[in-house]
Nucleic acid binder design. Structure first.
Lengths: 160, 160
DNA sequence: CTAAGAAAGTTGAAATGTGAACCAATATGG
DNA sequence: CCATATTGGTTCACATTTCAACTTTCTTAG
């Protein structure tokens, strides 16, 4: 039984603590940095993620719901986000014929062009601040460690 | 020269892509989950982080600036945050004698008690959703991989 | 000593995010 | 079929975050 102190709490060991804090720090600094690197192009991380999702989808379009799920946002938030991007001319909404409640978010030509222009810089940024700082075995190991966590969290998500 | 396509962009390989996306997904889902686990106690991740920092500091107090730096927030944001926590009775502001521009954020008794009460649950949460899903070698490896990234980002931070 | 600049924080307005209430359309079960 | 529940999405009100402007105090070069 690995318990550390008075009550039944299993506090984190030094090592666990350091790993946890490192993860926290990295994920925050990393997001900040990516955001900053996108800034010159007038995009936020959120914008960019939407663009990625749409550009990888058939017909460069996705149902609002699916997009919300894919980007882990609430419907509400996505709705606002798409409105903003619509105003920026990056996407447009289009009705769905098979389900008249539904809407597609569709990449505009300008959105697609933006994507083409920005993607290389973004990839460079991801490399510079993350990928290229890892050796190949490290990368593999990292991925191996993260997958079960992602699964667990996806599982847990929505449950109490 | 590892270049993949037409222009000089080094796109991500399948493997790199997966690792990167796993990292993104995990860090977001994880934050959401921790937030949810704190919710019953009426705290946000931000609140909790402030409490941790203060409770680990001498005299359970920190200068606003230092706290902002430690929590990677802007001064403005921290100021608002502390105001809210002050209203919730978790912290109070206290003048600094050595520098009359300065202020301390000080943990109140109620803040301290809250910390004592919540910490075990938070640790359990961190274990359940992260630490305990990693073997010890995985944990070590993860830490080893993250440290250089953290360093790089701290370095880069603030620079152009 | 003093003027100029930097540092510590706050403030207010605008942008973004959250959560509940809501509308319309589709499924479902008797 | 009809009544009810569910789904897809938006909207409103409110909370949080961001950004720039501002005050006060400290530092420093001359």
């Amino acid at each position: 039984m690995s318990m550390d102190t008075e009550n039944g709490t299993r506090w984190l060991s030094e090592e666990e603590q350091r790993a946890w804090r490192a993860h926290l720090e990295v994920s925050r600094l990393l997001m900040h940095q990516l955001e900053r690197d996108l800034q010159p192009f007038g995009l936020t991380n959120n914008d960019y993620e939407i663009l990625v999702n749409l550009s990888e989808s058939e017909g460069r379009r996705m149902r609002m719901s699916d997009l919300a799920t894919a980007t882990l946002q609430s419907k509400s938030r996505l709705s606002h986000q798409i409105t903003r991007m619509e105003n920026a001319g990056l996407v447009r909404r289009e009705n769905c014929e098979s389900d008249r409640r539904g809407l597609y978010a569709v990449l505009t030509d300008h959105g697609w062009e933006t994507m083409r222009k920005v993607a290389p810089h973004h990839v460079a940024s991801v490399r510079e601040h993350f990928i290229d700082l890892l050796s190949e075995p490290e990368l593999k190991a990292l991925y191996g460690s993260l997958v079960p966590i992602a699964q667990h969290l996806r599982q847990t998500r929505g449950r109490v």
